[in-house]
Amino acid sequence: MTAAEALDVLNVRPQTLYANVSRGKIRAKPDEADVRRSLYHRDDVLRMARRTNGRRKVEIVSSEAMQYGDPVLPSAISTAADGRLYYRGHDATALADSASLEDIAALLWECTPAEAADIWPVSSDTATVSDDEVVGGALAAGLFALARRSAVDAPSLGRPAAVLRAEAAGVLATLVDAMVGKRSGGGDTRISARLARAWHAETHEDLIRRTLVLMADHELNASTFATRVAISTGASLAAGVLAGFTTLTGPLHGGAANAFAELVAQAQAGNADDAVRHWLISQRPLPAFGHPLYPDGDPRAQALLKLLPKVQPHEQLAVAAEQQAGELPSIDYALAVLTTACGLPFDAPFVLFATGRCVGWLAHALEQVQANRLIRPRARYTGPATGVRADIRTRTQP
């Protein structure tokens, strides 16, 4: 943002803006078009503006509630606070040291010890999607399998919580079976072990386990909100997960891995500094760097990167991203480094994201069933003036 734009959003004097920059609360950099001016980091400015939301009109606050910052739904599942991610009050990075994805599912789904013991291991009760049926890899296979199940599963509304928790394990199994295949079964039945076997990466199973735990939930992101909206209608758990899964087709949520792969290719063809510079000039969001909830760095990325070797040109891109944009690696960057360092298949970041996050989608689905309330926000109308008498007949009519 320019200074004028930042001041308009913050509704403060220039001295206050400059003071926030000097205190490190708002990042700034020289404007390449005019080195005498500065540009101010949009996310930092919006975050500061939200802290003074008492000055804003109610309708503005309500509209911004659909964006980062103001909660739109009460939830006891996870939260990002003070630069950390918590699952039901537990630090997610600490849980990743020893917990399995199944352990996190039991925590987020509020399973009793007896339930947790009964629902694992589980295999999907739907047919495995074969390579002959679906072209398009893990994404297409997951969409196809969840759609099949959504067409026949019972609605979620009014069913016992214990029954739904057991069904949730089956929905998770449906997605895993579709994306990696039942051929990954046998031996250790934990999901992390199944992925490691499917990828011939058994020696890296612990890193895969940690990654799945760190991906399990992340507040009310786009996919989670889509899941809750679907479940609020009484749709089945599978349909709710399908709604969340479809959002991963969008480049702004789930598409960071592909965009970062493009950035890596540009760095390999030239150098990291130029790749980042050209990307920023194109005014596209820099993939795999920066996160509005973590201005001091994504703790999930930090938890993984400290266990991984430095790989190139990824490390060079991280340096360039911080120097040119003030952005630090996000979890998407860590997934890319993990994939390269461990020799995992190209779609491993997507599979890890979707598999881990499915646990969170299901947790939010179960919570929404208990809320038993339709999610139906109002629109802030911005069209033509209302109440104007108009003739809807076309001009060609007599």
Rank of each mutant, 00 (worst) to 15 (best):
A336Y: 03
A318K: 07
L317R: 08
A303H: 03
D332N: 05
E322H: 13
Q302V: 13
K306W: 10
V319H: 14
L328D: 09
P313E: 12
H314S: 11
Q316T: 13
A325H: 01
Q312Y: 13
E322V: 09
L328P: 08
D332M: 10
K306R: 15
D332E: 15
D298M: 06
A318I: 08
E327C: 07
L335C: 11
A341Q: 08
K310N: 15
L335G: 03
D332T: 07
A321Y: 01
A325I: 06
E322C: 11
P309L: 14
K306V: 15
S330K: 00
P299L: 05
G343P: 04
Q324Y: 04
L305C: 09
L328H: 11
L305S: 00
A336N: 08
R300Y: 09
L305N: 01
A334E: 04
R300H: 08
A321T: 05
L335M: 11
L338N: 00
V319Y: 15
Q324I: 06
E315F: 14
A334I: 02
L304K: 00
R300W: 05
S330A: 15
R300G: 06
C342S: 13
L308H: 06
L308T: 04
A318C: 09
L328W: 12
A301P: 00
E315V: 11
A318N: 10
E315Y: 12
A336H: 04
L308C: 02
D332V: 08
L308D: 06
Q324H: 10
L305G: 01
L344C: 01
E322M: 13
E322W: 11
A320S: 12
A334N: 06
V319Q: 15
L305V: 05
V319N: 13
L304I: 06
T339H: 06
L307Y: 07
A320W: 00
I331N: 03
H314A: 12
V337P: 02
V337C: 08
Q324E: 08
A341T: 03
L338Q: 00
Q324R: 10
P299W: 06
I331G: 02
D298T: 05
V311Q: 14
E327T: 12
L344Y: 03
P329E: 07
V311S: 13
L335K: 02
T340W: 05
K306T: 15
C342Y: 08
L335S: 03
Q302W: 04
A318T: 09
L317D: 01
P329C: 01
T339G: 01
